[in-house]
Design a protein around this nucleic acid. Sequence first.
DNA 1: GCCTTTATAGTCAGAGTGACTATTAAGGAG
DNA 2: CTCCTTAATAGTCACTCTGACTATAAAGGC
Lengths: 244, 244
Amino acid sequence: MNAAAPQGYDPHAFEPFAVTVDLAVFTVRESRLHVLLVERGEDPYKGHWALPGGFVLPSESAGTAARRELAEETGLTEDTVPSLHLEQLGTYSEPDRDPRMRVVSVAYAALVPDLPEPRGGGDAASAQWWDAGRLGTLAFDHDLILADARARIGAKLEYTCLATAFCPPEFTLGELQQVYETVWGVELDRPNFRRKVLATPGFVQAVEGPPRRTGGRGKPAALHRAGAATALHPPLLRPEGRST
Amino acid sequence: MNAAAPQGYDPHAFEPFAVTVDLAVFTVRESRLHVLLVERGEDPYKGHWALPGGFVLPSESAGTAARRELAEETGLTEDTVPSLHLEQLGTYSEPDRDPRMRVVSVAYAALVPDLPEPRGGGDAASAQWWDAGRLGTLAFDHDLILADARARIGAKLEYTCLATAFCPPEFTLGELQQVYETVWGVELDRPNFRRKVLATPGFVQAVEGPPRRTGGRGKPAALHRAGAATALHPPLLRPEGRST
DNA sequence: GCCTTTATAGTCAGAGTGACTATTAAGGAG
DNA sequence: CTCCTTAATAGTCACTCTGACTATAAAGGC
């Protein structure tokens, strides 16, 4: 049995699907990984929390739709969003994943710095940050998507410079280390982390001048910006085993 | 502008899409990376070569459809296919990627050992292996998909035990090294490669008994099987830079 | 001033790797 | 049968990177 001759299909013989995007938007707040969720107002799963998302419009690619949804849900202006890291995770297509109809969803993971509060331009009045470690059961297959997203992000921190996406434009190495410790759920040795980051060309660049960090106690830290590099070579491996 | 209230969509307000799967099926033949392609018999791109693929049926997930197509195109029996490595690459959804209609395609990469010849059970009479290094322009956005697939496979060889998927059930370390060299396009030092593979628990396991490889000249090599491990820790990094 | 906290500098041993050299065991040519 | 070639396997050595520490510097709180 075959759906059609290879690529030589009849334009009228296709099955209609709805295509949506779902977003796993992560941030680090108070040393905890947080995810942006929206509360469902209708059945199915009324009252449950779900990943934000929506339909892919006829004129959009899935990536464009994801970026649009991200802007709406976070309340960020359209000119801030392009700088955010948005990454396609995978596509979820089990026939029964939505009880009402056949919906195929392209999942994206987004990494944002600690934002004020979600409510902004979008109509997602009930959007809210949740501690990713203390979640109940989400709607649809969003538990699975979220688990995949966390695994992917954790793995990507190992061999890319992605961690800076969680930080504000200027940050200290201590803050960057916090990102790793929070996402991986481990503690890292501070001098070793510092040595590794500084030894990787293009990971971070020191901000000139004597400006230093205020706020807490202890010696002020030098500020850094994200560098031009995207890959980490050799990688910064997690203490224990791996995932993937 | 928003496609719908977050997840609270009207079942009738969706846009219809066709959903297909495209497969990048790789193998290593004669020290060259090969891809399985099919020739298009109809416009658009009539006469061009394309990745095999087809529609996702109403009762299937994309993964199920990909596995079905893989069985059809390679002519492998249904009971062999489950053991093959099949991995979701990503979803391609540019609005104009198919000139006839809106088609969203979920791409998969498959790794198979060197098979006799594709033609088998399927109706893909024109399926054929092509040297991945000497390809013309493919139909649709399949050049992009194929490039992404090669990048993904190359990266995965670094930190997973995936290379054994290209090998027959029993193989020599030299054959395994060939896989790395072919996919990465580099030469590796034989003793070092051997040391690394044997030092990774669960990567390969020696086949008992004195049986040894016949065929070529030179000292016979011990045979191995794929081990239980899936991750490579620490990774086997490519000599030069990275991709991703 | 003294203690606490955090940033930064530096040390040292062990694991892992790249670049080699050496040895063993086959087939093929004379 | 030998010698030569080829490929597998064993072993060496230096260098890099990392984990585990120790030490110093610079802030705030008391």
